[in-house]
């Protein structure tokens, strides 16, 4: 027994405090597409319920984080529960929502095709990465465009998707020294994940290509093209097509 006992365990949902203004609901202890889909579906359900005091609900690989305002949770509670801590009050409320036998319409992840110009100036690490794995660069592209990935979570920076489903032959440890500047749109491999940099940023992943798609725009609603639980397929395009798409 290495883990602490959760504050409460129902059949599937374990609640843990994340400090005094947030909590984590763990759905499982591994990374899987089913858990990511469940995190997405249930977090949308919790958000839709607009529980008093809940600030926001965030799905990740195998968990849901809920940020809340303890004072508002307390104020919204029944007078008979006045002795309970806000965490306990909220947990009871969220537990009931999670366990409710209901359909979650429209919460399935979308499939997005992401055009990528691989190699050359667009993916400066492609050749090195191919060399490291003793395969031709074209083989890297073939292996990278083959799977349908799913978004485990968004993090690191706005709109950055941690994509799961990378072919085991492409798994590559992150660069020892991060690059000070990785261009917006860069498609990269880091460990067992692949992802896309939505903004210019420092970064430690191996850049193998670039997409003309704008993954994040604060003036758009929602600001991110992708959400946790969505699915992605990469499609190889030529530099000409890249420039063409960028102009549109």
């Amino acid at each position: 027994m290495t883990d602490p006992a959760p504050r409460s365990r129902s059949a599937r949902f374990a609640f843990f405090p994340l400090g005094d203004r947030a909590l984590v609901i763990e759905l499982g202890a591994r990374v899987s597409e089913a858990l990511a889909a469940q995190a997405r579906r249930l977090s949308e359900r919790l958000a839709r319920a607009q529980v008093a005091g809940v600030r926001e609900v965030i799905p990740a690989f195998s968990s849901i984080t809920v940020h809340y305002e303890p004072l508002r949770v307390k104020q919204a509670a029944d007078p008979e529960d006045a002795g309970s801590a806000p965490f306990e009050l909220l947990q009871v409320r969220l537990q009931a929502l999670l366990e409710a036998d209901q359909e979650d319409a429209g919460a399935a992840g979308a499939l997005l095709e992401v055009p990528v110009c691989y190699g050359g100036d667009y993916g400066e690490d492609l050749d090195v990465l191919a060399l490291a794995h003793e395969m031709a660069p074209s083989k890297v592209v073939e292996l990278h465009t083959h799977p349908i990935y799913y978004v485990g979570m968004l993090g690191f920076m706005p709109g950055f998707p941690y994509l799961v489903g990378l072919d085991a032959r492409l798994v590559t440890p992150r660069r020892a020294t991060p690059r000070p500047q990785v261009a917006r749109g860069s498609v990269a491999i880091g460990g067992e994940h692949t992802g896309v940099y939505p903004l210019d940023s420092p970064g430690g992943w191996h850049v193998i290509g670039r997409t003309p798609l704008g993954l994040f725009d604060p003036r758009r609603q929602p600001p991110s093209l992708l959400q946790a639980g969505d699915r992605v397929r990469f499609v190889a395009i030529s530099p000409e097509r890249y420039q063409q798409l960028l102009a549109t």
Binding site: V24, I58, A60, F61, T65, M153, Y162
Partner: peptide, 10 residues
């Protein structure tokens, strides 16, 4: 650990 949400003070 599996990556997940953090908060002010983590």
């Amino acid at each position: 650990v599996i990556s997940a949400g953090v908060t002010f003070g983590t």
